[in-house]
Amino acid sequence: MSAIKTAAVIGGGIAGPVTALALRRAGIEATVYEAYENTADGLGGMLMVAPNGLSALEVVGVDHGLAGQPIHRMVMTDGRGRRMGEFAGLTGLPPSQVMWRTDLYGAVRERAAAAGVQTVYGKRLAGAEETPAGVTAEFTDGTRVTAEVLVGADGIRSTVRQLIDPAAPGPRYTGLLGFGAHSKTEVPQARPDTMYFAFGQHAFLGYWPAPGGGTAWFGNLPYEKPLSAEQASSTPSAAWMRILRERFAGDVPGRDLLRGTGDDELLTFGGLEILPSVPTWHRGRMVLVGDAAHAPSSSSGQGASLAVESAVQLARCLRDIPDVGSAFATYEQLRRGRVEKVAAQAAKTNSQKSMGPVATRITALLVPLATRTFLKPEKMFGWTHRYRIDWDAPVVPA
């Protein structure tokens, strides 16, 4: 049983409640403090939870009722709709699930509430001070809360990260804007258990047949100027749709999917961002988890899964290692290499999404050969998707 008994978790998105659930299972009373006044129900786009993420969610009891669509394989095509390669799911693993972020958020939040985790809204962190009793969080409304440890699960623009290290890097723009929508168009012969990645002449499009008909799609548009979600949304959807239809005019099936999408259906996510390597994950009694410590771009398909993994590993370390500093160091040792390797692969994927017509044609020639020879699913995804955390195994200090 943990020597630590209380924790303040900053951030009420997905990573925060999951961390609180894991800490509670480790015998630590954790309270979540969320900056906004209300829940984030209905916000966000689509995300994928890979088999490793599903396994980590099972550890904290979020393994039933997820409203996801199973994805058993991924297919790569060129801008003419010709298949370049296919990656099947890994033997012995459940399929990844694609779902709305709000559905995963709701499932996590409901599980946390059922387990007795308290979430306090309207608490925006302003600062933190180490005390003999632990660490005191100071909020912008003037209130203060003291716990034995403070966990920063406050996202890619983490306040806790800046408190730990004022020189810590912030998020970096990938050069791509994100969009998504539902199209009335159905792609001929597209399978409902398959996600398709189409590398067009000027932009990238991912899509899959949606339950109930039509096609769900997301697109990444190369764009020089970084835009926040709010800035991108200030441009009318009809204007973005004109740009997207122009960029995908020569692509199959992008051209048809955009034609079948109403302007008011478009979801605008703003610039896709990635977090450079964060030198310092912890200081004193403060530590980072999830996107606050490691945020690969959405191209990785691992953002949510890695956040849940880190929450579980942090809880195990605090459960088994009495010294807080040693527990945090061990947690970082368990996680850093893995998350940075995922981030590096996501960066390569981002570059492929904006490589231009000539490079796209060259890739279309090379990928079929690669997938028939050395580029196999086990080699590509085995090390990420087969990762499992044994909750009951004791943690050895770093």
Rank of each mutant, 00 (worst) to 15 (best):
residue 320 D to E: 12
residue 300 S to R: 12
residue 268 T to V: 15
residue 256 D to P: 01
residue 277 S to E: 14
residue 234 S to F: 10
residue 337 G to R: 02
residue 301 G to R: 07
residue 239 A to T: 15
residue 305 S to D: 00
residue 215 T to V: 00
residue 346 A to V: 03
residue 272 L to G: 00
residue 323 D to C: 12
residue 339 V to P: 02
residue 328 F to R: 11
residue 350 N to M: 08
residue 285 R to M: 04
residue 246 E to V: 01
residue 325 G to I: 12
residue 285 R to D: 01
residue 308 V to P: 01
residue 281 W to P: 14
residue 254 G to Y: 06
residue 244 L to M: 07
residue 307 A to I: 02
residue 268 T to H: 02
residue 213 G to D: 06
residue 325 G to Q: 15
residue 256 D to K: 02
residue 289 V to R: 09
residue 248 F to I: 00
residue 226 P to S: 02
residue 296 P to Q: 13
residue 342 V to W: 14
residue 318 L to V: 06
residue 292 A to R: 07
residue 329 A to H: 09
residue 228 S to G: 10
residue 350 N to A: 09
residue 312 V to H: 07
residue 350 N to H: 08
residue 327 A to I: 13
residue 215 T to M: 00
residue 343 A to D: 00
residue 316 R to P: 11
residue 248 F to K: 01
residue 321 I to P: 06
residue 312 V to R: 05
residue 349 T to W: 03
residue 353 K to S: 09
residue 231 Q to D: 05
residue 268 T to F: 08
residue 347 A to S: 06
residue 270 G to M: 07
residue 322 P to E: 11
residue 253 P to Q: 05
residue 240 W to P: 10
residue 309 E to T: 08
residue 285 R to W: 03
residue 254 G to P: 07
residue 276 P to T: 15
residue 263 D to R: 04
residue 279 P to L: 15
residue 226 P to R: 01
residue 258 L to K: 02
residue 287 V to W: 06
residue 229 A to Y: 11
residue 233 S to G: 11
residue 214 G to K: 09
residue 291 D to R: 04
residue 340 E to Y: 13
residue 216 A to I: 04
residue 280 T to S: 07
residue 220 N to M: 11
residue 318 L to H: 09
residue 343 A to Q: 09
